[in-house]
Design a protein around this nucleic acid. Structure first.
Lengths: 137, 137, 137, 137
DNA sequence: GTGGTCTAGACCACA
DNA sequence: GTGGTCTAGACCACT
């Protein structure tokens, strides 16, 4: 309930990386706020049928990054002093993915209009997939 | 000269994959046409300070895929009977990159409009970077 | 009031260990003398926002070690027959910390003189921080 | 020959941490210079009879810290642009260990002179342990 | 050859 | 209950 991760074991990007990336973005967006508790290593591992060490590795990375805070014997929490970032900062985090897509579109000889239209469809689908979209009432 | 690759050794996607993907997309778009010659393994390796075996692996993959043709003593060429693909086919190749970006945008709490706007800027920049844009004069 | 602990929850050394070590050293130096009362578990826990069980664990260790004495309903006291130790014994307790620092200094390529000078500054600062220095008026 | 680590499996500080700390200090001192290759994960693991994953964990931390650079398929190297640090910077790295020792000395009721003398003996011993001291001819 | 990832499971330490 | 550390060993990917 507090947070559900999308883990795709078959994805080429490693599982621990999927966790790291999702936490990063959710903290940036404020959907994970300072002080929030994360699911325990064991709970997350069991929920997705992955190894606890894989989860632990992700959490450790996020801790050494200053995004999470370990409270001994109690669990992992979103670090204090981690306010949600501004729209500009969040757009900067999105930039690399957009640039990669733009380069591919160019190499594929697609027009900007064609690429934008396809992206819009993807965005609609992504919003629909979410349990409840943050966009509309 | 005929073709310049964007190789980023520090990118998480392996170098040989970067080469393979770029060739695939350029053949799909027709910017590499049947019969065109590719840079020699040595030339490409030297130009980007990468291992010749890495280039060779990429070319071999593309050859076994039927996209390239090795002419002994002469080099690698785009195989005949490799017409550019339709727009729909090329959009399908672009899809994965767009979906990844869309998911990230959602996790970052960005609206579809904000994401689209940012993507448009990336497309403009990508077009500007190209020696000559395939879209308009 | 009688004794103030330096507790750093983020320190890699566990909290209960920080308490145990500080009590041990203060008893060795005589700054905690036989019969002195220690702060109650609750008081110490509240003062440093730590778990009472953590304090309790530290006190229990010190009790089983013979350093402290639990007087029912009254609190914890420094055990009788616990004379301050000799300078040589106290230096032996300091040794591990000095050896660790010496090894680090060597790995950092610092000369003995540079390390000693820096240590002297630390000692001065530590003396200054103390309410009243045990060395001179 | 290139680099030998001091690994003490019985030390309370975890093995991977011992490796991380030693690399950090050696890079700071210049005894490991930019571009130097580190022992391979497997070699280091075998030499000290520890698990390759333990070494790998240490190297990964150092990489994410920017101190080491992974060259795919070739090994780990000290990152470029990692000049040895100034004496002041190296003293700053030594500071925490010195402060801990100073606080302990104070709690033990030892005079600054007594602590300094003991530290000097430790430094002499540390220098003697080193194969060849960097201090004298 | 190199490092990366993941698993399964043990054991420890902390609260 | 929590996370941390380590092992043993498999499999993958890159050069």
């Amino acid at each position: 309930m507090s947070i559900d991760f999308d883990i795709l074991p078959s994805d080429p990007v490693p599982i621990y990386r999927q966790i790291v990336d999702q936490v990063r973005r959710r903290v940036a967006s404020g959907s994970l706020a300072a002080g929030d508790e994360l699911p325990s290593v064991r709970a997350l591992a069991q929920a997705h049928a992955i190894n606890p060490m894989t989860v632990s590795k992700a959490y450790s990375l996020l801790e050494s990054e200053g995004l999470l805070e370990r409270r001994r014997g109690m669990g992992m929490f979103v670090a204090a002093l981690r306010p949600a970032r501004s729209v500009a900062q969040r757009l900067a985090l999105l930039e690399p993915a957009l640039q990669a897509a733009a380069q591919q579109a160019r190499e594929l000889g697609l027009s900007a209009g064609q690429a934008l239209e396809a992206f819009e469809r993807c965005l609609d689908r992504a919003a629909g997939d979410a349990a409840r979209s943050p966009e509309e009432p």
